[in-house]
């Protein structure tokens, strides 16, 4: 069954069609990768799903809710959360506070409850702090909760960003190049971690990836974009043999990545 379902989504920037007529089905509890050369429109597609951009045409359905025209804060409440290609943590907040912001939508305290520090508020805050600590531990950052996000090393920042996304308890998690800038060991850890997210927490994962090793290693379905359009879709093995895909990458002179795996 499709958790996320898009029909003929189109996003233009002036004359440039960043995403064109895109149809994608994302099955529940799958790991689905989107690949494509630079500027293919992958990030733009993410931005359309999460409400950063409003597509000019088309329909995006999540659990039978239409997402087009909703603001990002509504969409995250429906259960879609994301990370960013170039990490966007709240740099001057601690790791712990970053995660607590992720929990925002699940907390109810209002102005007077907070000022009076009502029992309900205190209970809620305590539970939130516990959950945040649990998430820190989950992404292997236990003990680093009091560090400012900007002072964490790169790999930790990537994982903290995922923890923050998880804090909103998503059904669908969008990861924009989660292994960018990682060495092979870290990349392997991240792959295991992503698989773990799906297997243990049952979160559906939509993934933008450049490293073919990752794409082929963990995804069940791969969608290939080029110039904003879908040029192929299928299992990793089907994609690898697809001449159109090789052509798209060849045309941009990055054969290395595709052939690397085969």
């Amino acid at each position: 069954m499709a958790l996320l379902f898009t029909k003929k989504v189109t996003k233009r920037f002036g004359g440039l069609v960043a995403v064109g007529d895109l149809d994608i089905d994302i099955r529940e509890k799958s790991i689905h990768s989107i690949i494509g050369p630079n500027g293919a429109g992958k990030t733009t597609f993410f931005n359309c799903i999460t409400g950063f951009y409003k597509p000019e045409e088309g329909e995006i359905l999540f659990n039978d809710h239409s997402l087009v025209g909703l603001l990002p804060d509504r969409i995250v409440r429906l259960g879609i959360s994301r990370t960013y290609q170039n990490i966007r943590l709240f740099p001057n907040l601690t790791a712990m506070e970053n995660i607590l912001v992720g929990l925002h939508g699940h907390l109810r305290a209002g102005f007077f409850g907070i000022v009076m520090s009502t029992p309900a508020t205190r209970k809620e805050e305590k539970e939130a702090a516990e959950e945040a600590r649990r998430l820190l531990k989950f992404v292997n950052l236990a003990g680093k909760g009091d560090f400012l996000a900007k002072n964490l090393p790169y790999g930790d920042q990537r994982r903290l960003e995922i923890a923050r996304a998880l804090a909103s308890r998503p059904k669908l998690l969008l990861l924009d190049e989660p292994t960018a800038g990682m060495n092979p060991r870290e990349t392997q850890d991240m792959m295991d971690f992503i698989q773990h997210l799906r297997d243990e927490l049952g979160i559906t994962i939509l993934l933008i990836e450049h490293q073919m090793r990752v794409v082929m290693g963990i995804s069940e379905t791969v969608t290939v974009l080029d110039y904003g359009e879908k040029i192929a879709e299928g299992t990793p093995t089907e994609i690898q043999g697809n001449p159109k895909v090789i052509e798209a990458y060849l045309g941009r002179g990055s054969t290395a990545e595709v052939s690397q795996v085969s």
């Binding site: 804060d73 969409i75 995250v76 994301r82 709240f90 001057n92 506070e97 992720g102 925002h104 923050r164």
Partner: peptide, 14 residues
């Protein structure tokens, strides 16, 4: 404070 740090991301966090 999240809004101060990054308004768009804050919004995307609900």
């Amino acid at each position: 404070m999240a809004m101060r740090e990054d308004e768009d991301v804050a919004q995307a966090m609900g």
